[in-house]
Design a protein around this nucleic acid. Structure first.
Lengths: 125, 125
DNA sequence: GTAAACTCCGTAGGTAAGTACGGAGTCAAT
DNA sequence: ATTGACTCCGTACTTACCTACGGAGTTTAC
């Protein structure tokens, strides 16, 4: 049993962030004793770790909420995962395209001897 | 010479977006004749295309403003480019990591026969 | 026993890059 | 001459995800 500050510290989150997740319906407000302070047990830690991991995997908070509400509906979870996968793959593609373009640009810059203007600026114009 | 609506249409931008870029200092407010309407010549088209291209390369509007103010300082432009390149490469890395994890997760889902719970949800818990 | 640290709540602010609104003036076509 | 489209301006709203503030009550450490 711990209070919100300890929980936050334990997970590397801000107190406000935990309250925010509660407001957003990602976690439930725990029982509060006489003094009005939130008191958490260990199950909340798992839930918050779930949220953090899913976030790290690129899911938005809304999607995390969906995932959590799906319980164990494997087909639906899988479909959300596949959808994320497609998005991630297309992002990778885009970024690799950018990588090539920017590499070319900085190379042309490196080889430029004319101080009066820059091939990147010129080419982008 | 064209008014803001035509310019916007020509570039596929919104009128408000052009006004926004003006407010942000990316482009200058053009001369306005008696009626108060903005009137643009062709040089603005190049500037806005520059902005759009740089944005497509992953530069933020602030960075675009920097680039534009650098004139032809090749070394500085190159350094901004290389910095972007590093960011892009690390993003690609991260996303490829995610790709692997999500692939594994959806695969385990696909092979799951137990309807009562989902390996993705289980593993993330 | 008192000062520091913690918690409560609701609301406001911040970021990035726009997008929308409202009321007023202006221009083009019929 | 009137309708509809266009423009002006400043401000507020949007999305996603927090972060900060203010003022009050509570707990902990010395």
């Amino acid at each position: 049993m711990k209070t919100i500050g300890k929980l936050a510290k334990e997970l590397g989150l801000g107190v406000e962030t935990i309250r925010f997740y509660e407001r957003e319906g990602l976690i439930k407000q725990p029982q509060k004793p006489q003094n009005g302070y939130r008191v958490y047990d260990d199950s909340i830690t798992k839930q918050l770790q779930f949220i953090c991991r899913a976030k790290a995997l690129g899911f938005t908070l809304k999607e995390v909420a969906s995932l959590m509400s799906m319980g164990g509906d494997c087909a639906r979870v899988e479909s959300l995962g596949l959808q994320k996968l497609r998005i991630i793959q297309s992002k990778i593609n885009d970024l690799q395209g950018l990588e090539v373009v920017i590499k070319e640009m900085t190379n042309s810059c490196r080889n430029n001897n004319d101080q009066s203007h820059c091939p990147i600026i010129d080419s982008i114009k």
